[in-house]
Nucleic acid binder design. Structure first.
Length: 473
RNA sequence: GCUCCGGUGGUGUAGUCCGGUCAAGCAUAUCGGCCUUUCGAGCCGACGACACGGGUCCAAAUCCCGUCCGGAGCACCA
């Protein structure tokens, strides 16, 4: 195994004092992109013996999948990401309200009933709406009315002042609270004034004592907004690091699309092999250590990258190959007549590289034999070797025994896999959702739940006696 | 449109802050060889990149300017 790359050190580190966080929203299970965030944070916290907080950001009830709270924890556990504390943002409304009230009193925030279209248009032109210049008392009064339910959804919202003349319009005054009447899966109708992400994140990052924040570049502008809150209170800033955008091809990641697809039966579930979810990776037999190595090697650069399935597969192969039992799977089998004298005893290792490997032992006699349609078409009329059995002449509908001269291997005789008996009908789901059908050596069923190397076919996670998921070539 | 961020081989990354040791390292992919009763693994080798154009300098992947290209934000999403 080659030496693995390491992540660069973080600045301002004090061993044992580092606090970092994972901040997923519970809209669905985690996917391969989330894994980057989780693994990078986990790697650093482990290196610096710090604390990792799982903070579930559930401040938008419209976007919550109730099962996701648990799914996220399961996914992280599978990834071997260790967090020491779980914080649910919907448990912290009182804190958010309290912080907001202080900001209003400091005249760093205001509460508006101006239609947001006007607010946005004026902000674009660096013009303040009326309420921005109101004294704290007026804004506080409106804030109380907001909390008391005197405004309906859309009638009022609370805003953090930044700098209306900021050259970047994305940084100017931003909304911190809005009214939501949709019940929250955990809190029901207890709250109707919900913080926006920039507000709750800044508040929590401070009160949870974060020292370092690692997240995607898409949060660059959010970080700038959040800094205003830090500065108003004089809180010390964590060290921020933003990594680049990842584009993942040949995979579906958007929870909204997945939910729809599951509902209409297009996808089998959250672990459908076409999805980029960690559940799908797990089902396919991708080892979590391969995912970790992939993201560690990719590092924390701020350049935008394309996710490479090829590289992930290569890492996975290194990890699983030594532990993958070898078996035969004959895809699209062709039944041939096997012609030979007497009985040939074959003994094939399950783990060819291990000294204490178990074996698959068979007594082969004349009768039937199966090889793949592809091999049949390719080698008809030629002499081939049935692996571990002997050399045969392949003719139409039959295989005629010639000899067991092993020196022919050196000369380059094609070696193919085969099955005579002791097999089961088997289906393998490919990453594109299609299904390969064939027959699987029965012995492989002793290794259900493991990734098997089906020789000359590919690595496959054997799920049960009828079905497997293709891992990769 | 406005504002940010970035561009090293097919892919990912090291080097860029503090210019020379970088005619650019590593991984993966591809190709070839060895080994192996798998088209797998392993070993060896080859191929292949500093986006473009100017400038500064004895010297630039590294600093400056421009161009092109990619990405992000300008949500009562996170």
């Amino acid at each position: 195994m080659v030496e693995e790359k390491k992540l660069p050190d973080l600045p301002n580190v004090e061993i044992g004092k580092v606090v970092m966080r994972l901040a997923p929203s519970p809209s669905g299970p985690l996917h391969i992109g989330h894994a980057r965030m989780a693994i990078l944070n986990d790697e650093y916290v482990k290196r610096y013996k710090g604390k990792l907080i799982l903070r579930i950001e559930d401040t938008n009830p419209a976007n919550i999948l109730p099962e996701a709270y648990k799914m996220i924890e399961d996914d992280l556990k599978w990834l071997e990401v260790d967090y020491q504390e779980v914080v649910i943002q919907s448990d912290r409304f009182e804190l958010y309200y309290d912080v907001m009230e202080k900001l209003i009193m400091m005249e760093k925030a205001y509460v508006s009933t101006t239609p947001t279209e006007i607010f946005k248009a004026k902000r674009q032109q660096s013009i303040a709406i009326n309420e921005r210049n109101d004294p704290a008392e007026s804004n506080l009064r409106r804030w109380d009315k907001m909390l008391n339910g005197e405004f309906k959804k859309g009638e009022a919202y609370a805003v953090i002042k930044t700098d209306l003349t900021h050259p970047n319009p994305a940084i100017r005054d931003f909304i911190a609270f809005r009214i939501i009447e949709t019940p929250h899966p955990l809190k029901g109708n207890k709250y109707r004034v919900y913080p926006m992400m920039n507000f709750s994140v800044a508040t929590d990052d401070h009160f949870l004592g974060l020292t370092h924040v690692i997240r995607g570049k898409d949060h660059l502008a959010n970080t700038e907004k959040q800094k205003y809150i830090f500065n108003y209170f004089g809180w010390s800033l964590p060290f921020y690091l933003h990594y680049g955008k990842v584009s993942i091809e040949n995979s579906i990641l958007k929870t909204s699309i997945i939910k729809k697809g599951i509902a209409n039966g297009e996808f089998k579930g959250w672990d459908d092999p076409r999805l980029g979810t960690l559940l799908a990776m797990k089902k396919r037999g991708i080892n979590p250590k391969a995912i970790r190595r992939y993201w560690v090697e990719t590092g924390i650069g701020d350049v935008d990258i394309k996710f490479s399935w090829e590289n992930l597969y290569a890492f996975n192969k290194h990890i699983i190959d030594p532990e993958s039992p070898r078996h035969f799977f004959v895809l699209n089998p062709v039944k041939l007549e096997l012609i030979l004298e007497g009985i040939i005893k074959v003994k094939m290792p399950v783990y060819p590289k291990k000294e204490d490997t178990p074996f698959r032992e068979y007594e082969i006699r004349k009768g039937q034999v199966y090889i793949t349609q592809e091999d049949y078409n390719k080698f008809i009329g030629k002499e081939i070797r049935l692996k571990d059995l002997g050399n045969f002449k392949l003719e139409e509908g039959k295989l005629q025994y010639i000899d067991n001269d092993l020196s022919k291997i050196k000369q380059g005789i094609p070696i193919i896999h085969w099955l005579q008996s002791d097999f089961v009908d088997f289906e393998i789901v490919k990453p594109d959702g299609t299904i390969d059908k064939g027959i699987l050596e029965k012995h492989a069923l002793n290794y259900i739940g493991k990734v098997n190397q089906l020789e000359r076919y590919g690595y496959t996670n054997i799920l049960n006696e009828k079905l497997g998921y293709y891992t990769h070539p």
